[in-house]
Simulated assay, not measured.
Amino acid sequence: MTIPKHSKLFDYAKGAYFSDSFSREIPNNNQTALDVYLEIAKQTPAWVSFLMAMRNRIVSMFGLKHLGRLQDAGSEKNMASIKVGERIGIFTLQSNSDTEIVLEDSDRHLDVRVSFLLDVEGDKVRVHATTVVHVHNFFGKVYMFFVAPIHKLIVPSSLKTLAQAY
């Protein structure tokens, strides 16, 4: 799927090494984009947690940072007081509105931005989950070689779990 033109990541995706966007319709419960991200993190399937733990173990052998667990998002502090620049689980908050949250993680190998964009359609909300990656070097490309195919399984699965949670 293409990145929605009204997403903050639309222009950021130009020249990206990797990008994808998936969407899913969920009931409209007046949730914010932050609420959606926290629910996805909370509902992380065990197989995704296992893959994340393996990722952390493997990359730490090469001196890369241990990101932690996706489901840790929101457990550290009161989310009502979260500010741009603060960590939410494995990501740093880059921007936050009721309809779109942008999270990021950067290192010397790559820059990753993730967006959860909500399009309200009456009693339904279409959630767009978009990921954009800019790589800086060969190691970033090697990393994405392994991560990209798995990512294309994780995001749709997470959106399906989100729909079931609402």
Rank of each mutant, 00 (worst) to 15 (best):
E76K: 15
N29E: 12
L153C: 03
V102P: 07
P4T: 01
L110V: 13
F91S: 06
D11T: 07
S7C: 04
R55P: 13
M144L: 12
Y37Q: 10
L67I: 05
V125M: 04
H136D: 08
A33R: 01
V132D: 04
N96L: 15
E121I: 10
S106T: 08
K8A: 15
I58Q: 07
T44Y: 01
I58H: 14
V112N: 09
V120A: 00
D107Y: 04
V102Y: 12
T44W: 02
K77A: 14
Q43N: 15
R113E: 00
I101C: 13
M52V: 11
H6P: 06
R113G: 04
E121P: 00
V133I: 14
V132N: 06
Q94Y: 11
L117A: 07
M54R: 10
E76F: 13
D20T: 01
A73W: 02
R108N: 11
L118R: 02
V59A: 08
D119P: 01
V36Y: 08
F10C: 09
A33D: 03
A165H: 12
D105I: 06
M79P: 07
A80D: 14
A46K: 14
T131K: 01
G89A: 02
L9K: 07
L153W: 04
N28S: 07
S106W: 05
E25L: 08
R55M: 14
K65I: 01
V48R: 09
D11M: 08
L159Y: 00
H109V: 01
G122A: 05
A73H: 05
G122C: 03
R24T: 10
T32N: 10
L70M: 11
L103C: 08
H136S: 12
D11L: 08
G89S: 08
F139G: 01
R113K: 15
A165D: 15
P149M: 04
Q164A: 14
L118P: 01
L67D: 12
V132R: 05
P27I: 06
F62K: 10
F138M: 15
Y37E: 08
L117P: 12
V135Q: 02
F139C: 06
G122M: 00
K42T: 02
S115G: 09
E121V: 04
A129Q: 10
T161A: 13
E76H: 11
T161I: 11
L110S: 06
L51M: 13
F62S: 05
D20P: 00
R69P: 00
Q94E: 15
G68E: 04
V135E: 05
I40W: 03
K14V: 13
E104L: 01
F50N: 07
L103R: 01
L118F: 00
M54V: 15
L38V: 11
Y143T: 01
S157P: 11
P156H: 02
V132H: 02
A53V: 10
K5A: 08
G140E: 03
P149S: 03
V125T: 06
I154Y: 05
E76T: 14
A80C: 03
L38K: 09
G74W: 09
I40L: 10
V102W: 08
K160Y: 11
I58S: 13
A53W: 12
T32A: 11
T44G: 07
R87H: 14
F50A: 11
